[in-house]
Design a protein around this nucleic acid. Sequence first.
DNA 1: CTATGAATTCAGAATCATTCTAGTTTTTGC
DNA 2: GCAAAAACTAGAATGATTCTGAATTCATAG
Lengths: 191, 191
Amino acid sequence: MTTGRRERKKAQTRKALAEAAVRLFAEHGYDGVTVARVADEADVSIATLFAHVPDGKDALIFDDGDERHVWLAAAVRERPAGQSVLAALRNCLAERGPFAGDLPPEQRRKRDLIVGTPALREYSRRLWIAAEGPLAEALAAETGRDPADMTVRALARYVLEIPELAGAEPDPRAALDAVFDLLESGWSERA
Amino acid sequence: MTTGRRERKKAQTRKALAEAAVRLFAEHGYDGVTVARVADEADVSIATLFAHVPDGKDALIFDDGDERHVWLAAAVRERPAGQSVLAALRNCLAERGPFAGDLPPEQRRKRDLIVGTPALREYSRRLWIAAEGPLAEALAAETGRDPADMTVRALARYVLEIPELAGAEPDPRAALDAVFDLLESGWSERA
DNA sequence: CTATGAATTCAGAATCATTCTAGTTTTTGC
DNA sequence: GCAAAAACTAGAATGATTCTGAATTCATAG
């Protein structure tokens, strides 16, 4: 039921829009490209562009980004026995987003585009933060707390803030580790 | 030199804009008010409105917000002897923003407006985050570290994220304390 | 006091993102 | 094949923001 011609075409158009946007943004800069130009390039009308990307211009290049919360919660729930939830999240993040090691040049260009464009960085952050609720629930479930516990919510938020916080550092992986260490041990530990 | 008629008029107009905006936003909702309406209410042209508030509609009601970084850094630097930097920041935040105890009804309305309006909340967060650099510097100076140390930057960021994170909780003050406790002791302490 | 240059103001046009309208074309389920 | 649902489109409308070019006001050196 998710594989009719309809669904296929929809996904295809969405991808065409994302690819056109990445190409154009990379070449002329985010502000140097109008949504009309992207629509043209993908050969759809402006109205159709917004039908496919209701969150607007920022969201154009984020073809995916709707399932972060799925694999984040999974990483917490299905971690190896004996591993802490934070260790699981650290490993999970280390492979994703701005922390991934060597990417194909295509994806590297896209990552650089995001990191170097405030509007896109901001939207990327929103995508991460959108997983706060689900992640907090998973954390609460795994550690036997109330999902509304402020401590759990704060931890979820702080973890999800890491890509934006550490993603632009010269050595993102080292930065990632430093922040996780802080979250694990707290500040007073090292004062 | 900062007290000519010019400066006075400028501040006066800025305040008129902020007050008009708060009143109209509170009455009709953020999206129910156009900048043109606010300009009218303050009896200036649209162009003048943007000259006074270059950051746009979001920024209209934040007449102040440019000196957070000053009193934050001061709170850290001039804390009582023996007090930790985090304790100083906790006390400092406890009196400000969404955590302030009993406010005059005027300011309460404004605070509720911000908390209840996504666009304003988001802009408020940006104002807090803008203090990250200065706060990180102050923290580094006080604890003998490199201001570019990721740990210091992360701590600054996490502290500044607290108003947005805990400000809408039923008991903001308790939430504030919970988050500071997490930052102080770390997660593993309570796993 | 007054001329002059900097800053402020304004009306109105122009851009651009986003939404709305209303009508046309596909796709799907039967 | 047919009717309803879903997608598409051109074009108009809205609203924020910027730009232009011409007044106005202010500060102040002379």
